[in-house]
Design a protein around this nucleic acid. Structure first.
Lengths: 256, 256
DNA sequence: CGCGATTTGTGCACGCGTTCACAAGCGCCT
DNA sequence: AGGCGCTTGTGAACGCGTGCACAAATCGCG
């Protein structure tokens, strides 16, 4: 107990790579902690309390402690967490000690932006290749990379040791691209196309849909508006309407 | 019971706008159902079973039925759901019957792409204004919209009845922009900047961080690799190493 | 050297979300 | 008209995630 074995301490000889399979919710928060920790490190902090880190990451401190406890005991009671150590630890767990190569398929509007997004490079990833199906776009140079035709995927994937595929194509093309990525051994896909992908077991797909995010916000906006429409009355002014047309939120509280 | 009152049927006279405050998880899935339903409508389907819709949306059919049951009873036992009716219903609940105006702040790499993304327009939103703090970019025309200086936000927000703000600035600028959006009455913000925003109660913030998505994938990739590293042996080849350096996944199963 | 202040790590209870399984209801066919 | 097959809607059990509250542990100071 006192000799707690840190599993997989990064850079240590004899490190046990057994990952303590974390709750999915925890995994989703670790990157946020990591970003906050990098900020702290840059501003000269050597240690940080769970309260402090939780604040910087926008979560509850109890949740943060429980999350971190899943990767082992890396804090010091009465003191806090060693920032540098915790960074190493989280980066190790997330598999960021090696810079993974990312293939981006689809260099349209969004693909262009992603190719130029420096947040990838600065956080452990390397965009290794760009692909598109449109011959018009093949050969174009974006952020120092030449766009290749999708048919070259198989060859390039091996050359560059592609680990992750990003799909930024129109929806109708996405499934075919996913199939091709899977065929060349990619087991992690980030999908920006607004459609569901079907992939074999063992392949992870995460989806980012910008319109969906807006629609969720729209719902809450709608709800907030419908609530302010009935300010204090329990029964509400709207049910007071006999059976006539109830205009559904004419303006929805924009200016108050 | 038999005379079930459909709450808030869209376009109906006497519609009760009381929203049946839905579980958050359900709200997050409704847009996906909606997209699937639009696909079905375009391919000529009049009705769809929970099984069919669930398949198209990539979820479990029981979950789908429970989700839909929260908005009322819109299915017909033995038949399924009326596609058109369900579309109307979900769009009403999500508040998409009115086309909400979106302000996009930050027209850098990502902002450019977002401004040109037609998925917004086609799914109930209207990008009404673009802003940036860089005088260099002010005046530039993107997808038919002129980039305005952020200082004009207050005036334009009222003119255009901005309902939702999208932040696509660098992280250091994001909080200030959020404050300005809140100041002009925006209560829903979609944040693409990699930082936590602090906003007053009643304001909804959703965050999209592209690097975080990749890091989550990276974790699973790392985990999958560490599992295939110990294929069948309970003890594993790695713990078999006496105390020497255990290389932490030299290649991590790319070509296997 | 001991004590108090501080902070981590965690047991426990609670609530939400998911899933199963089935009763209730609907349409169709005979 | 009646029965049969199909599909929805939902009660109930289960599991995960969250948050509280506290014991355990460490540091600093007198």
């Amino acid at each position: 107990m006192s000799q707690h074995r840190h599993p997989g301490a990064p850079g240590r000889a004899g490190a046990v790579p057994a990952l303590p399979d974390l709750p999915e919710a925890t995994v989703a928060r670790l990157p946020e902690y990591l970003r906050a920790l990098h900020n702290l490190a840059e501003t000269g902090h050597e240690t940080v309390s769970s309260e402090g880190l939780a604040g910087a990451a926008g979560v509850n401190s109890a949740k943060l402690r429980k999350d971190l406890s899943h990767l082992g005991s890396y804090g010091t009671r009465g003191v806090g967490y060693d920032v540098a150590l915790l960074i190493d630890q989280i980066e190790y767990v997330l598999g960021l000690t090696q810079r993974r190569a990312v293939a981006l398929v689809g260099v349209g509007n969004l693909g262009h932006a992603l190719a130029g997004y420096d947040g990838f490079a600065s956080r452990g990833f390397r965009i290794a290749a760009l692909f598109d199906a449109d011959p018009e776009r093949v050969g174009e140079e974006i952020s120092g990379l030449v766009v290749r035709h999708i048919d070259e995927l198989a060859r390039v994937a091996v050359e560059e040791a592609i680990a992750i595929g990003v799909i930024a194509t129109p929806a109708p093309a996405a499934q075919a691209v996913a199939d091709q990525l899977v065929a060349v051994g990619v087991t992690s896909i980030l999908n920006f196309a607004p459609c569901v992908l079907s992939v074999p077991e063992g392949v992870d797909v995460r989806k980012v849909d910008l319109a969906i995010e807006l629609q969720i916000l729209s719902f809450h906006e709608h709800r907030k508006a419908s609530l302010t429409a009935l300010p204090a009355t329990g029964g509400s002014a709207l049910t007071a309407l006999p059976g006539g047309l109830a205009v559904t939120d004419p303006q929805e509280a924009i200016g108050t």
